[in-house]
Design a protein around this nucleic acid. Structure first.
Length: 558
RNA sequence: UGGCCCAUGGUGUAAUGGUAGCACUACAGAUUUUGGUUCUGUCUGUUAAGGUUCGAAUCCUUAUGGGCCAACCA
């Protein structure tokens, strides 16, 4: 990445202006997840944004769980969120919870009541909705709007003490039922929920709404720049109103456009459905756009951070091409992945002039990184190569194996195909080849240059492994924007399990290793591997210029 | 048919009244013991119409298009 970067996103501009004119000497941001689901790639964008701002400018970032709705929240999510943020490479200053502030928030509510700015409403949810009006029509005042301060205080206390059932009463701000901003039409501040909270247990049976908790928590933590997504723009007016009336530290809210990625969904509700209805194997299914899914798939934190930086921050609607994410992970993996050879769909090759013995050949672990060293690979008389690396009647510009043609076997010898043996159905059973002994890699005196280089494994030394190949989860670019249920657009072929014949060094694969299976793609060991069974996830394929070439001319073929 | 937000190549994002740039993609070529990588080059853009100005992607007006707002969700 360029370090001479001079352009700023709009938030950096605001902060630089704040710092320059002395509004702040340092800044405080926060990442405020609700612990009701796993983090996804969209959250990664927000995490990078919030944490990078306080790396770039003086200040710090808090992690604050917005845990004001106990019925959907759980400590399982808290733990996963913390793990994911750390894995991405960020560390927060303080770990906080909105629930840490419940006492304080209750006092804030009492303050509002005393100021005549909040009241207890006995209306039902339906009634409140009816009295709300519409964007083009004003709402109506609740019949309970003008209760005395004493009565409000007393009722609110009884709400807190559990004297009323769920849904029977709410605390509402007293603003303006004709306000042009629907959120200012006496928004609900507190509701009754006799529910067990993952942190406060059964202490509370009333819980603050988002608007009554978020801005106040920001204020308590002296957050200077409270960054959220565009759908909260209308909330800003209420955010500011509450801070002003409460006369507390003036945090400010700024909004940016959430990042959308094509061929997937990033909505916790939808992701939860995919998990609950078993369309995927869990939150960390490698097809999921969750951080844990990407991690299991083999994505690196570096590549995700790079992606977030490249897509930037702005205020306009967007649909980022998943191809950019794939570019980022390929770029990183190319530098760090260990090269290995694995044959997926084997055809047997017999080197007829090679003796009945084996030799060990040396091959570099990573041509991009000499320090990665080399490994030894057994070479013998019987080998496997990829079935589609041989064609009986090769098309133009094909430089793999064909009758009478020569290819290089990677890190080994040049071979020439002399004969093909077919079975009764006409399928190719094996290929008889001869090798050029003087063409051994690193010691090639043959003077022969061939265009094609193939990967291979020694048949009798090959290790059988399982490979899971993933494709995009949805068939359309924007499943959430299509007609009908987003699940109608699920790609039923998003997981393909194949067998592979691997070079023996893969027996030493560890879970943190990243591999490039030569000419195939990038892979990592899956956590399902056990008891000598090796399972690899395909992170992403290699770019395949030949496949593209074939596609291009394929349609023109007679 | 209320209010608010937004509009730059296929995609994402810069240019802050003064040469429309960068990245991805696509295409062409070079290199290559991975048809990978790397390198070089090419194509494609300011939603529209007015206005202000010596000069407008940028400021103003209108139109058009997209998004958001009527959960006791966040």
């Amino acid at each position: 990445m360029a370090t001479t970067e001079t352009s700023h996103n709009f938030l950096e501009e605001i902060i630089e202006e704040n710092l320059k004119n002395g509004t702040y000497k340092s800044i405080v941001t926060r990442f405020p997840p609700e612990p009701n689901g796993y983090l996804h790639i969209g959250h990664a964008s927000s995490i990078c944004l919030n944490f990078n701002l306080t790396k770039k400018y003086p200040g710090y970032t808090n992690l604050r769980f917005d845990d004001t709705n106990p019925v959907t929240e759980d400590t399982e999510y808290v733990e996963s969120i913390k793990e994911d943020i750390r894995w991405l490479g960020f560390e927060w200053k303080h770990e906080r919870y909105a629930s840490d502030y419940f006492d304080q928030l209750y006092e804030f509510a009492v303050t509002l009541i005393k100021k005549g700015l909040a009241y207890v409403d006995d209306s039902s949810s339906d009634e409140i909705a009816k009295m709300k009006g519409t964007p083009t029509e004003p709402g109506k005042n609740s019949p309970f709007r003008n209760r005395s301060t004493e009565e409000n205080i007393s009722l609110f206390e009884k709400m807190k003490n559990g004297e009323f059932p769920d849904g029977s009463r709410t605390l509402r701000a007293k603003i303006d039922m004709a306000h042009i901003n629907m959120l200012m039409r006496d928004p609900v501040l507190y509701r009754i929920k006799h529910a067990h909270h993952h942190r406060t247990g059964d202490k509370w049976c009333i819980y603050p709404m988002y608007d009554m908790a978020h801005g106040q928590s920001d204020s308590i933590e002296n957050v200077t720049h409270s960054i959220c997504t565009l759908e909260f723009v209308p909330h800003r007016e209420l955010y500011d109103w509450l801070i002003e009336k409460l006369e507390i530290y003036p945090s400010h809210q700024y909004e940016f456009a959430r990042r959308n990625i094509n061929y997937t969904v990033t909505s916790k509700r939808k992701l939860l459905q995919l998990v609950n209805e078993k369309y995927v194997a869990g939150w960390d299914d490698p097809r999921m756009p969750t951080i844990s899914g990407l991690r299991r798939r083999g994505y690196t934190p570096e590549s995700i951070r790079d992606f977030c930086e490249r897509i930037g921050v702005a205020k306009r609607e967007n649909l980022v091409d998943v191809g950019l994410l794939e570019f980022c992970v390929r770029e990183h993996l190319n530098k760090i992945a260990l090269r290995r050879m694995v044959v997926f769909d084997p055809v047997k090759v017999v080197i007829t002039n090679y003796p009945e013995e084996y030799e060990l050949l040396k091959s570099e672990n990573n041509p991009e990184d000499e320090s990665a060293g080399t490994r030894e690979i057994p070479f013998g008389r019987e080998l496997y190569i990829e079935r589609d690396d041989f064609i009986e009647n090769p098309p133009k510009k094909y430089f793999r194996l064909a009758p009478g043609q020569k290819v290089r076997l990677k890190s080994a010898y040049i071979i020439k195909c002399d004969e093909m043996i077919k079975d009764a159905d006409g399928n190719i059973k094996e290929l008889h080849c001869t090798y050029l002994p003087e063409s051994r890699s690193g010691h090639d005196t043959s003077g022969i240059h061939v265009k094609g280089t193939l990967h291979w494994v020694s048949k009798n030394n090959a290790v059988e492994v399982e490979v899971r190949e993933y494709d995009r989860l949805f068939k359309v670019e924007n499943p959430a924007g299509e007609d009908g249920d987003f699940k109608d657009y699920i790609n039923e072929h998003s997981l393909k399990i194949v067998k592979g014949f691997a070079e023996p060094s893969l027996l030493y694969a560890k879970s943190e290793d990243r591999f490039q299976f030569l000419r195939k793609g990038y892979y990592c060991l899956d956590k399902d591997s056990a008891n000598g069974k090796f399972i690899f996830n395909r992170t992403v394929t290699l770019k395949d210029a030949w496949a593209k070439e074939q596609q291009k001319y394929g349609s023109n073929k007679p």
